[in-house]
Structure formats: structure tokens, C-alpha cells
Amino acid sequence: MTRDPITLFERARAGDRRALARLLSLLEEGGEAAVQLSARLFPHTGNAYVIGITGPPGSGKSTLVNALTRAYRERGETVGIVAVDPSSPFTGGALLGDRIRMQDAAGDPGVFIRSMATRGSLGGLARATREIIRALDAVGFQRILVETVGAGQVEVDIAQAADTVIVVQAPGLGDDIQAIKAGILEIADILVVNKADREGAAATLHILRSMLSLGQPAVVRHHGQAMAIQRVEPSREGWTPPILQTVATSGKGIPELVEAIERHRAYLEESGEGEARRRRRIAEELAALTRERLWARVVHQVGRARLDGLVDQLLRREIDLHTAVERLLEEIQPCIEERDFPREA
């Protein structure tokens, strides 16, 4: 199989799944081929609707993805799935097991599932996840479901990658603590209490409701006294995240979830929030990539030895961090000026 990025892209657009798989690997590996590919497919992106699914381990994210996929396939839409699991920081290895619960789509040419290891990145997604999403978008998948790592507290990256973010909770996972931890609830466009047939589901639902408190201060009993707690998070303008109950294994509540996603999609379009989000996201990605490339240029320009020298000086407290940064910027300054802004003679 060729590794030429442009040929791979043409074949993948024509429906060659092996070419698509190879193309995703190239994007994941990074480097020159990935840049070339990314540029080639970018004009074809922006058509898919991206749904992020996050939540603690054991909440049933993969099973929910499986159920949503089935629902979208019944509506005749094609589905690309990206399932992210963590890499070990010690060995670099990873065990990617999300496919186990995504078997319904086996053999369906309208579905493509790709597992990804985080490869050192934090925040619940891998570094190349957004490139992979764009590639699935560019080859024509209509729905893209992205399942995050599942640490439950830090995966806020998904808010940068998805149109609609679903935060999944399940009874019996220590929810009352989890729910109070900031970050994860704030990114939710839709909240799902999965495994709603299990004991404790009502309590989980109640806790989530009071966290979001739906316009009313929640009343809790503290040392026997009723007291009101203030809303932690003001509801986002015009959209209050609905809380739904599902049993993903049986499909219960899935039609309602699909419906809620459609309502959110309509809200994004009508309110202009969708456009604003897309703008914020692409600006943020531009900044992140520029930072990365600039740093690569610094390393290339000043060299490892010089960097190590600076680190030694920092450790000995001979200079401070900001001064070290100033020095590095000074050293690459001439190269930037020369290259991009030639001085007049």
C-alpha cells in the first residue's frame, strides 16, 4: 500500500477503507506527510456533525456510542468513530479496548471505527485527534462520535473538538464527589445518566439536577438544617443542558438522546453560538499549532546543547525563567526577521 499522502486521500475519498486507515496512521505519526495531508483535506472539512462523549470509566461511554451509531445508521447516516484510550506514560504502550462494546456495526460499510492512544497528551484526547476527526469529515462521514479517555475530570479538550458534548454519568461511581469537581460539568451540552435501570440512578439524577439547579437554588440539608446552595454554574445563555436517562445496553432513552442532540444542533445554528464556537475553536487551534511550531524552531535554531545550558543555569538559580525566555527569543529574532521581513539595504 502506498504511503503517498495525496494518493491515499484520493483513494479514501473514493471509498477505499484501507487507504483511509493508512491515512489516519500518517496523520497520527505527524511530520511532513501529516502536514501535506492536513492541507489537502482541509478544504473538504466542515460538513460532519461532531459529537463528543465523555465521562468517568465504567459509565458506559462505548456502549452509548454503539447505541447512537445504531440510531444514526437507522436514519441512513454514516458514522465515523474515534475512541481514545490512554498511553502508559512509562512504557508508551496502550491497551485500546473500546471496540469490545462497539460490535453492532461490524461489517457495516457505513461505519468506521478508529482507536487512538493518547501518546503523551493530557486532556482526554490525543494530539492528532482533531486531525483524525477532520479526515473522517473530509472523506464524507456525516456523524463523527468521539469518545474521550474517561478520567472524568480533565477531559475538557473535547469541548474544543465537538459540536455537542455529552457528559455521561452512571449510578454508583462516587458521583456526588465527581459531579462537584469543576470542569467536566461545565463542558456538558447534554447530561446523561446511563445505566438508569440500576439502583442509585435516582440519586445520581438528583445530584446532577442540583448541580445544574435549573434556575432554582437547590435546597440541601446540612446538619439537619435546610439551606440553599447557590448555583455553581450559570446556565449558558439560551441553552440549559438537559439531563437524560438511558440504558445503552437495551437502547432505552436513545431516541430521546438523539432528539436532544438535534435540539442542541438547532440551537447552535439559530443562536449563532455554533458559528461563534467554530470561530473560537479554529483560532485556538491556530494558536496551539503556532506555539508548537515556534518551539520546534527554537529548538532547531539554538540547539539542544544551548537549551540544556539554560536549564542548568535555571537549576542553579543563576537566571530566572522569564530571562531565559527573553534570551531564547533574542536568539531566534534575527532568523525570523531575516526570513520573513527582509530589511532594506
Partner: peptide
């Protein structure tokens, strides 16, 4: 290694298809 585990009771078609998608 990056290991993808697909669980029990797989047909040869399912295995080959997963191998393809996961490259």
C-alpha cells in the same frame, strides 16, 4: 505496543475488518 483488543466471539470477517480500520 499499542494493543487493540476486540473481545470474544469474533468472526474472521470481524477480525480482518478491525485489523483494516485500525491499520
Amino acid at each position: 505496543f499499542e494493543v487493540i483488543y476486540t473481545g470474544l466471539r469474533q468472526t474472521p470477517e470481524m477480525i480482518a475488518e478491525a485489523a483494516l480500520q485500525e491499520d
